[in-house]
Amino acid sequence: MKKGLVFLVLVLFVVSVNGQTSFTSGWLPKVVVSAKTSSTTKWVNSIEAREVFYEDEFAFSHSLVDVSSIFSIKSDVNKSFNVGYIIRFKDDDIIHRTVQHFNLVQSFDALKLGHRFGFEQFFESGAKPQYRTRYRASLEKALSGDKVDVKEWYVKLSNEYLWQFNEEDLEVRLSPYLGYQLSKKDKLEFGLDYRLGKLLDTPKKNSLWFRTTWYISL
């Protein structure tokens, strides 16, 4: 697994260097608040900002804010479906997004392997609707024991592929995180979020974000 990860990072680096003309970096702070509405359903709300520190040169700017509301339905112990709505505020533009996700979690002793398959639709005034599909694989492991307990650390690694139908654009994301279980009701995660877009075109679009997420369960 480690060799495969190193190989993937090297491939992404080589691809990004060839023909690279743009690079963006910044911070993605996010707060996620969830509440169970029944034994099989959950309501998840979040707010995320995008603060740019570097865009071909060092310059701080506020890019956007995403506000989301998602309803999750658990169909099995390890399976769930998500349907929701995300509104994005970017400059003077407002972008509406509807999402449908299928989630599958597999447990292997001290490891958790997650899969997410998703479809998304984007709507914006004065623009044609956009459609995207995505697949994400994630691996989570407790750093002490077989499961994550309160006041314990864990690591998470995710690899995601996004396909934009209208623009025929492929994007790859690689995200290593370090998490800490603050209590039974909340946890913190922080790490890096590397994105390589326009993978089938030239020039490529690169971005590297420092991400911090606070998860709160009510």
Rank of each mutant, 00 (worst) to 15 (best):
M1N: 10
L5D: 12
V6C: 07
V9Y: 10
V9K: 04
L10S: 14
V11C: 15
S16W: 08
S16T: 11
V17M: 12
N18P: 02
N18H: 10
G19H: 06
S22I: 03
W27K: 00
K30V: 07
V32L: 03
K36M: 00
T37A: 10
N45W: 02
E57T: 14
E57R: 13
A59N: 13
F60D: 14
S63T: 10
D66A: 06
D66S: 04
I70E: 06
D76T: 10
V77Y: 15
N78P: 05
S80K: 14
G84I: 05
G84R: 11
Y85N: 09
I87Y: 01
R88I: 09
R88Q: 06
F89H: 14
D92G: 05
I94Q: 09
Q100S: 08
H101S: 08
H101A: 12
F102Q: 13
D109M: 09
H115N: 14
F117E: 04
A127V: 09
A127P: 05
P129V: 06
R132Q: 15
R132S: 08
R134I: 07
Y135T: 12
Y135A: 05
S144W: 07
K147H: 05
E152D: 08
W153H: 04
W153S: 04
V155W: 01
N159C: 08
Y161L: 14
W163D: 07
Q164Y: 11
Q164W: 08
F165R: 05
E168A: 13
E171L: 14
R173Y: 03
R173D: 08
L174M: 13
S175I: 06
Y180C: 01
Y180L: 02
S183R: 00
K187F: 03
L188H: 02
G191I: 02
L192D: 07
Y194G: 03
L196M: 11
G197V: 05
K198Y: 03
T202G: 13
T202D: 13
P203Y: 11
P203K: 09
K204L: 08
K205P: 00
S207N: 12
L208D: 11
W209C: 09
T212A: 05
T212F: 12
T213V: 07
Y215F: 03
S217I: 00
